[in-house]
């Protein structure tokens, strides 16, 4: 096993040497092909030879010096090409490990990653929260009754985990409908308590609002009578993405750019070591 591995290391170093000789005597596209093969071989060698670097510490080789009458440590001259190659591979690995970690752990804290976007199969005007589905048509067709008091939106609070809480007052026990502007209007409903206080939550995990300003409209809805109040004054709030949000959103693009980075580093290393 050990012998086969060492022979593989030898074989790869030979291939790299041969490829360099060919590269020196080639031009144009053919030369570029040699560069890419060289980079690939160097990366493969870096992986395969990693145990060599892990297994032998610098200065671990000792030799006997007769003139000194004893052993003395002899350092390997550390080859800059290998260091740089391993550094390049290390960066490559780190980026991909980072990407993997983000893919695994970030959804647990911030909800599903928006890596893929699926178009609406059945375009609708409104995205309706689950418990309002049955009444969504009813409130759209409800008559506006100006005598019905409008609810008040008092506060918009952002809490951990990308959740926004809309808090306000209304007539006690009235149903409150809240419209959030997005590409499609997002509709929530909730009932005010006996004191007239109502609270509606929007979670970015369920429906992700884009960065920027969004308007909020609230009104009361009486399902029995089929009427609704006039909407209270439109209010606005701003969604600001944190750098983590941006990183998560662009993680795939960033990680794929790492490949380009590695190729550039590889080309640089190849030319440095010719």
């Amino acid at each position: 096993m050990r012998s086969a591995w060492l022979n593989l290391v030898l074989s790869l170093t030979n291939r790299i040497y041969s490829r360099k000789q060919e590269l020196i005597h080639s031009t144009g596209v053919k030369g570029m092909r040699h560069v890419f093969v060289l980079i690939s071989l160097e990366i493969i060698l870096a992986f395969i030879s990693t145990p060599l670097y892990l297994g032998i510490k610098s200065a671990s080789v000792s030799a006997y010096f007769r003139e000194k009458g004893g052993y003395e440590k002899i350092n390997f001259d550390y080859n800059i090409r290998r260091v740089l190659t391993l550094t390049g591979v290390g960066i490559f690995l780190l980026i991909w490990l980072f990407k993997l970690a983000i893919i695994i752990f970030v959804p647990q804290a911030y909800g599903p990653l928006p890596l893929y976007r699926v178009g609406n199969l059945e375009p609708i005007d409104m995205v309706v929260s689950g418990d309002l589905a049955a009444t969504s048509v009813a409130f759209q067709t409800a008559k506006t009754l100006s005598s019905l008091p409008s609810p008040q939106l008092k506060e918009i609070r952002k809490v951990a985990g990308g959740t926004y809480v809309f808090i306000g007052n209304s007539q006690p026990s009235m149903e409150v409908v809240l419209l959030l502007s997005e590409k499609n209007t997002i509709v929530y409903s909730g009932a005010a308590d006996k004191n007239g206080r109502w609270e509606i939550k929007h979670s970015q995990k369920d429906i992700r609002l884009s960065e920027g300003n969004h308007s909020v409209l609230v009104y009361n809805f009486d399902a029995k009578s089929g009427v609704r109040s006039v909407a209270a004054g439109e209010k606005f709030f701003k969604i600001t993405n944190t750098w983590i949000d941006s990183l998560v959103k662009d993680v795939d693009v960033s990680a794929n750019w790492s490949v380009v980075l590695i190729v550039i580093v590889g080309i640089l290393l190849t030319f440095l070591t010719l």
Partner: peptide, 15 residues
């Protein structure tokens, strides 16, 4: 041997 990897491989072979 000037090739670091091969030098280390040879060291492993003989040490």
């Amino acid at each position: 041997e000037d090739d670091e990897v091969l030098l280390r491989a040879l060291y492993i072979l003989f040490h």
